[in-house]
């Protein structure tokens, strides 16, 4: 009798304890250092935080483009068979809007981020950071957004003013009045 009473009391205590600690059980995540996540931590916000060392220019980018991008994005990044990356500035409020990096994209950092993570389509993550800076400079230069002698690096890229930067209106948390 007393045994079963003690068992009940113990069970009650265990229940009480488990309900106190249940909030964040079972705590199985393993700590990992910033250095050890570097290969994964590749997203670049508009501030440029996290941009890697290295730099690239329009001229260098032309070579990277010819080797890795031309086949899909065409001569001068004019498109075909894949998307056009230049042109269309001033077209967004017409009957035939053309969305390209030059006419539509609000942040130059997005271009670096996207090329590095996803391009070229058949071998993503194959370009060096230097090559990504260079081809970013090439596409921005083709669009007349930066001069052809500009150097793109962690300091200069976030400062690039994209022509369509101010034409986006956030609908979160609610639509504008």
């Amino acid at each position: 009798m007393s045994m079963s009473k003690r068992a009940l009391a113990t069970a009650g205590l265990v229940l009480a304890l488990s309900s106190v600690s249940a909030r964040s059980e079972p705590q199985l995540g393993q700590p990992i250092s910033d250095a050890d996540i570097a290969a994964w931590d590749i997203s670049i916000p508009p501030s440029g935080e996290g941009l890697p060392p290295g730099s690239g220019t329009f001229a260098e980018g032309r070579d990277v483009y010819a080797q890795s991008c031309l086949r899909c994005h065409g001569e001068g990044a004019a498109g075909k068979p894949a998307d056009a990356l230049v042109g269309g500035q001033g077209s967004l409020s017409t009957d035939a809007p053309q969305k390209t990096v030059g006419s539509y994209w609000p942040y130059a950092t997005t271009l670096f981020d996207y090329i590095r993570r996803a391009m070229p389509l058949e071998s993503p993550r194959s370009l060096s950071d230097k090559d990504v800076y260079a081809v970013t400079a090439y596409i921005l230069g083709l669009n007349g957004i930066i001069p052809e002698d500009a150097v793109m690096d962690a300091a200069s890229l976030p400062d690039v003013q994209m022509p369509n930067r101010d034409s986006f209106v956030s609908w979160y948390p609610s639509p504008p009045r």
Binding site: S43, P45, W105, P106, Y107, T110, D113
Partner: peptide, 13 residues
């Protein structure tokens, strides 16, 4: 976890 949106390609272009 970030302060603001990262402005990725799929939430801008």
């Amino acid at each position: 976890v970030t302060e603001g949106p990262t402005e990725t390609k799929d939430e801008t272009s």
